[in-house]
């Protein structure tokens, strides 16, 4: 979706402000939210792509004005409600009002924690050989799906060079919407700054994205 989350190249957000000695969490509730999202995802309530889409789908003014973990909280509430796993009326009441729905991998217990400390693999067997190879000149397609995609707006329609093949991975555009893993080849595609930002761009800059095969067309 063409949401405000897709920020590459936007102006006006101001300076980057690093915080010296930044704590891991700025309040205890942030850690609880992070842990709930990880736990519910690990047990199969949703996959990482659907979870990202839930955050992107927050109203733009909420997305931009909420802290990072506040976004996670608001998206988690909405997502669980949409899945029928926890109603917003229950959160408002502060207690379960109905029985839980079945979770694919059951209750998240202490013994499950170790498993989620290492990322799962997103690599999958390929249905067909990769179409592109390093050195190929490709164009990022001009696509504008209202659904989840990982092709940022700032590269759409622009020409780049395939630099690496990173294997065949779960395709977020499908997985986010319950349409299966639909594995696709994944490439690093590099763009010259002037191709992206015009003649005034810093000529020493090159930008790469990780592009799934359906995002690209051969030139």
């Amino acid at each position: 979706m063409n949401g405000v989350h897709d920020m590459g190249g936007m102006d006006g957000f101001g300076k980057v402000e690093p915080e010296p000695n930044e704590p891991v969490f700025h309040a205890a509730w942030e850690g609880r939210v992070m842990a709930m999202v990880r736990a519910m995802g690990a047990q199969g309530a949703f996959n990482i792509d659907a979870s990202r889409f839930a955050r992107e789908a927050l109203p733009p003014e909420v997305y931009l004005s909420s802290s990072y973990y506040k976004k996670w909280l608001l998206a988690l509430e909405r997502h669980l409600a949409a899945l029928g796993m926890a109603g917003q009326d229950e959160v408002a009441a502060g207690h379960a009002l109905r029985d839980g729905a079945p979770l694919k991998r059951g209750k998240f217990e202490v013994d499950d924690v170790e498993r989620i400390m290492v990322r799962g693999s997103f690599g999958r067997d390929a249905a067909a050989p990769a179409i592109f190879k390093p050195g190929d000149k490709v164009r990022a397609k001009n696509i504008n799906p209202p659904t989840h995609t990982r092709l940022p707006r700032y590269v759409r329609g622009h020409t780049g060079i395939v630099e690496r093949i990173n294997g065949c991975h779960v395709f977020p555009d499908s997985a986010a919407h319950g349409r299966g893993e639909n594995p696709q080849w994944l490439y690093t595609v590099v763009f010259e700054s002037r191709e992206l930002w015009g003649d005034d761009a810093d000529p020493t800059l090159k930008v790469s994205i990780e592009a799934f095969e359906p995002y690209l067309e051969m030139i």
Binding site: R119, F122, L186, T204, L205, I209
Partner: peptide, 11 residues
């Protein structure tokens, strides 16, 4: 040269 890597997938 400055090379920026946008982490748009699971790499």
């Amino acid at each position: 040269e400055i090379r920026v890597w946008d982490s748009t997938a699971e790499t």
